[in-house]
């Protein structure tokens, strides 16, 4: 009996979770990186919270973006190197769906903890508690978009030796609108202004990426596997 698409997705998710449990250090590392990078800014700029408060939204967002990029570098590489990806490509199942399932699981494991960690880092940089929901909400929508854009880049560069700098060069320009809307939303919230606009735009970008991204991922992956 052939399995249905939902079963296939569950199988991919289950496999990713099991691998994450056996390799939990790789899941925690981006989170630690996020905290360390955020710590750099008070050291580099000023210990005064009133000064830090102005740049806090940008700092948290840039740190989250870099942490996401760092974790995506190894999203597909192990599977391509050990031949699992070839088997996926030849499984007769839609590769776009498999890669999307893998990316979403990856976001649950690395993006979501980051979203939950961000308000604490924001507070440490002087952001008021009232912006927590906007900070977490914008990061939740934004990091999911970053994961999909980053996964396209990771699929394009997976066959390239030392592709991590190349990945950053390809993906960061594409991610700039996400940074603009995300950081601005938090900034507006700290000044007590309406944030529905940028949050809606972030959600729109996420939907666009969800709809088109998987096809770009699978096309890129097939090129990389030749």
């Amino acid at each position: 009996m052939e399995p249905g698409l939902l079963q296939i997705v569950m199988l991919v998710v289950a496999r990713e979770l099991r691998l994450a449990v056996r390799h939990w250090d790789q899941v925690v590392q981006p989170l630690i990186f996020f905290v360390v990078v955020t710590t750099l800014f008070p050291l580099a700029i000023s210990p005064s919270l009133s000064e830090l408060r102005n740049i806090a939204p940008g700092v948290v967002w840039v740190a989250a973006m870099l942490a996401s990029l760092l974790s995506l570098e190894s999203l597909f590489r192990p599977d391509v190197e050990d031949g699992t990806m070839e088997q996926w490509a030849l499984s007769g199942q839609p590769l776009a769906l498999l890669l999307l399932a893998k990316t979403v699981t990856h976001w649950l494991l690395t993006g979501l903890p980051l979203v939950m960690m961000a308000p604490w880092m924001g507070t440490a940089l002087g952001l008021p508690v009232s912006v927590w929901p906007v900070l977490a909400g914008s990061l939740a929508l934004g990091t999911a978009t970053l994961s999909i854009l980053g996964a396209i880049g990771a699929a394009l560069t997976v066959a390239v030796r030392r592709g991590s700098v190349l990945l950053a060069l390809l993906v960061l320009p594409l991610e700039m609108p996400v940074l603009i809307f995300g950081a601005r939303a938090v900034d507006l919230a700290t000044h007590g202004e309406a944030v529905a606009g940028p949050l809606n735009l972030l959600a729109a970008m996420l939907l666009l990426c969800l709809a088109l991204g998987p096809f770009a991922m699978s096309a890129a992956m097939r090129v990389s596997m030749e």
Partner: peptide, 23 residues
Amino acid sequence: RAGAILAIVGVVNVPIVKYSVVW
């Protein structure tokens, strides 16, 4: 082919970049 995929993703992104920067 890899370049083509990137160019297509990029061209979808160009209007979003323009709009976001103006905003």
